[in-house]
Structure formats: structure tokens, C-alpha cells
Computed example of a mutant assay.
Amino acid sequence: MVLQPPVQPMLAQAAEMIPPPGALREPAYEQKFDGHRMLVFTPAGPGGRVLLQTRRGALVQDRFPDLVAAAEQLPHGLVLDGETLVWDSEAGALSFEGLQRRASASSRTAAALAARLPAYFVAFDILQADGTELLTLPYRERRRRLEVLFAACELTAPWTLCPMTTDVAKAREWLESWTDVSGVEGILVKGMNQRYLPNFRGWTKIRRRDTTEAVIGAITGTLSRPQLLVLGRHDAAGRLRTIGRTVPLRPEQAPQVSEHLAPAEPGHPWEGALFAAAWGSRDVLDATLVRPNLVAEISADRSIDHGGVYRHPLRFKRLRLDVAVEDVPTFGRGSNAATD
């Protein structure tokens, strides 16, 4: 059967660490990139259209004319699964914000944005070749065919083959070191014998998490029973800037925090500010400002925009009563910790 969009991609479940030996038969490890999931469909023959499908099934080829044009390098009847990334030449780094702009562009502005923010596609799976569906093949065979495709067609940018290894030591190195590279946020674990199962969470994703510090500037709930924390860092001009919020505090954490909270005094730097319930969301938190003199130790992943705001909720670990607000990393420093 020839695959046609929408095709539901296979999904991954989150884990805190690499599964121990024996947990998965013949595991394979791929680098996990911080982009947008995308399926690329090339036409069955000359004259057909290249289609680009998002994870949720929307067709977005009009927003990525550079990828459509580059698909001339690809053979007919092909379906690739992978991650789309965007390079910001001014910043000299991969840009999730730029990717968001590309993904929401109109057909009138898409070409201009493509010139300034070119897109790249990191392929990690092949679902169809020469018009033949490959979902029932084991991952080892699909990966072999993907590697043959890249070698035979001598594919170059914007097409990139996702790095893969079966060496767990190499995977740990990627998780610990490669995640320092812009755009790499962790690893994905697959079974070499796994079939491709649409809409099934059969893979495992591990994001690197770092411990760092931030200032508590607001809470939800009450001073006696805080629910979550809104965190900030000072920028170079000394202004307290919001960097994100925590997940809800655990029952034993709330009293530890409430014991030290104090109501905000007049002139709080966030007076009149609204706090998004999630990164990119229009929903706002019902927040209460507090005196910004407490430092929280937090656990954070590497999904940070160029402005220094964390895109995923943070995890509160403990108060750092031994760390002064002035010793917290400055806004935009990412996960660089203030102390050992």
C-alpha cells in the first residue's frame, strides 16, 4: 500500500535515564534534536507534488519552499520521518524561535523567511521507498535502507542523516557532551527489531537535565500553600526577567518553600506583568508576587530560547538559602549553575 498523508508518526515516551542493559533487546541510540517532527513525501512520479506533514497531520509544504526545492535530490515514492531545524545566520546557531516563525509563515512571506532562516531536515527513519511501504520491516533494515539512500543519492544539506549507535557508552557521551551543542537535547532509544507502529509510544526519549539556580519572583496558590513557582534571573542591566515556571510542588516541598516566602513590597519588578501558563501559550497564571530574595535550585532540560526562557516546565529541587540572589546565573546563561 502506498502511504499518503496524513500518516501518524511513531512516538516516544519520556524517561529519566538510559534503560539498563537487558531492558531492551538490541537497543539502538539516536541523537534527539530540538525541532519540529515532520514527514516528507515525494511524488510517485514526475509532475507530482512534494508534501510535508507535521506530527499532527497538517500539510506545511507552502511554508518550507526551500525543503520542497531541495527534494529534487530525493527519489520518487519516498517517505522520510525526521526533525526539521532552522539555522539563524545572525545568531550563528539553530533557532527554535526561527522554526516557529517558519512554521506559522504565510505563503507570501515564506520565501523571504527561508532566505534568512533556512530549514534543515534530520532524517531518522524511512517509511516508504520506491512506492513500497516499509512499516513492518525491523528498524535495523529500515536504518540500512536509509543509510543506502543517503550514500547512493549523495545527499547533502538540507538533508542530514541522524547519527545512530548501538554502543551505550557512545550514547552516554552524546547525552553528556553533545547536548552542549545548540539543537541537540538528548537521545532516543529504539529496538533494532522494532517495527514502525504509527501513533504508538514504542521508543524512549531521554532529555539531558542540568541543575541550576533561579530567583523566586512569584507563585500560584497562597503564601502558606504555594502550588508552583515563577522564576527569574537578572539581566545585564539588573532587571529581573522571567525564565519560566516549575511543575506543581510536591506535598513535602510546599511547606519548605512557604516557610521562607514573604509578600511582595511596592516596586516589585514584575508589577503588572502577566505570566504565561506555558511557553508560547496565551493562557496566563493566577500568580501572586513575592519578595524576590529567595533562590531555588531547579532541574532543567536544554530547551531554551535565545532570550534565556525555558520552554518546558522546571522542577524545583530545594531552596538555596546559602546562595545570594546576586550569585544566580544571569539571564541568558541557560543551565550554567551558580555554584558547584
Rank of each mutant, 00 (worst) to 15 (best):
P19H: 07
L67M: 09
S107E: 12
E72C: 05
G98Q: 09
G57I: 07
L99Y: 01
G45C: 01
S107N: 00
R63F: 00
A44R: 13
A71V: 04
V79S: 08
A93Q: 14
I18W: 08
Q73S: 13
R25C: 04
L78A: 10
T42F: 04
L99P: 03
P75I: 06
M17K: 13
R37C: 11
A91Q: 14
G45E: 14
V60T: 10
V68C: 06
A93R: 15
R37S: 13
Q61V: 01
L39P: 09
D34P: 14
A91E: 12
Q61D: 11
D66S: 09
Q100D: 03
G57D: 06
S107R: 14
E26L: 12
L85G: 02
I18H: 08
D66W: 03
L85T: 04
S89D: 11
G57S: 05
E83F: 05
Y29Q: 07
T84Q: 12
V40N: 02
V79T: 13
R37I: 01
A91D: 03
P43L: 00
A69E: 15
Q73L: 06
V86T: 14
D62G: 10
A91V: 03
A71K: 07
G47M: 03
L94Y: 14
E26K: 14
P27S: 04
F33C: 04
A15M: 07
P43K: 01
A44Q: 14
L59Q: 11
S95E: 05
Q100P: 00
R108L: 08
A15W: 12
A15H: 15
P19E: 08
E16P: 07
A28S: 14
P75E: 06
R108A: 11
E30T: 11
E16T: 13
G77M: 05
E26R: 15
S104Q: 12
E97Y: 02
H36F: 13
V60P: 04
F64T: 03
A58F: 02
F33A: 04
V40R: 01
L51R: 15
G77T: 09
W87N: 02
A28D: 11
A103P: 00
S95A: 08
D34E: 09
G57C: 06
